[in-house]
Design a protein around this nucleic acid. Structure first.
Length: 203
DNA sequence: AAAACGGGGGC
DNA sequence: GCCCCAGTTTT
């Protein structure tokens, strides 16, 4: 089947999958918020710097906005994100006993947490069968003809119909790696792509 | 549906 | 100097 062939080739290409420094739910939640619209060459060192000082909801909830701003000033939207990190931590303490919830409907109530971020936390921290759809997953799924959709939300729904459930949690990491290096938004490296005998863009 | 938020890195 | 980046919120 087409989708299984694509995933099989991606796994061969990236046998180690997507690298995560730390799968602790709180770390993953915060670092994923920091990663929004920001390259991970920037967010990984920034997340580590932040957590070297503030590594729990208790510490982050009572920190000064100015201190957090200074710690994360390299990532995009750092001012609004600084306040959101405090508000996320306060909400975790007030409503979830300081524990990151294992539930999409609760996660998206946190400020600055949308469906993509919530699904990444479920995917990587809780090992849940979800498909976290970012721009890479959205673009590649459409390019390769797995879906025909306009929005990431639509893509998530349609992918769930096409992809076997035991492959859901592999999709995100594999397509992000593929999308950053080969199947790029502009100037994709089709001449060096292992998909170029099955990709509808080239047939 | 579209605009706004935003510093850093690649070219 | 210009364009894009592991999105979310607001208008």
């Amino acid at each position: 089947m087409y989708v299984e062939e694509i995933i099989s080739r991606l796994k061969e290409l990236y046998p180690e999958g997507y690298f995560h420094i730390n799968r602790d739910p709180f770390y993953l939640l915060i670092s994923t918020v920091l990663s929004q619209r920001t390259r991970d060459e920037v967010t990984i060192p920034t997340s580590q710097r932040l957590f070297s000082v503030l590594d729990t909801p208790e510490k982050m909830a009572t920190a000064d906005v100015d201190e957090i701003q200074e710690l994360i000033k390299d990532v995009g939207f750092y001012k609004v994100k600084s306040q959101r990190l405090i508000n996320i931590s306060r909400m975790l303490l007030d409503e979830y006993d300081g524990i990151v919830p294992d539930d999409i409907n609760e996660l998206v109530k946190l400020p600055g947490v949308g469906r993509k971020t919530a699904n990444c936390v479920l995917n990587y921290a809780f090992d849940r069968d979800v498909i976290a759809v970012d721009t890479h997953v959205h673009r590649i799924s459409n390019r390769m003809g797995l879906v025909e959709t306009e929005t990431p939300e639509e893509t998530e729904i349609e992918l769930e119909k096409v992809v076997p459930k035991d492959m859901w949690k592999e999709i995100n990491g594999l397509m992000v790696l593929f999308g950053k290096t080969i199947c790029k938004p502009v100037s994709p490296k089709c001449d060096k792509c292992v998909m170029n005998d099955i990709c509808p863009k080239l047939i």
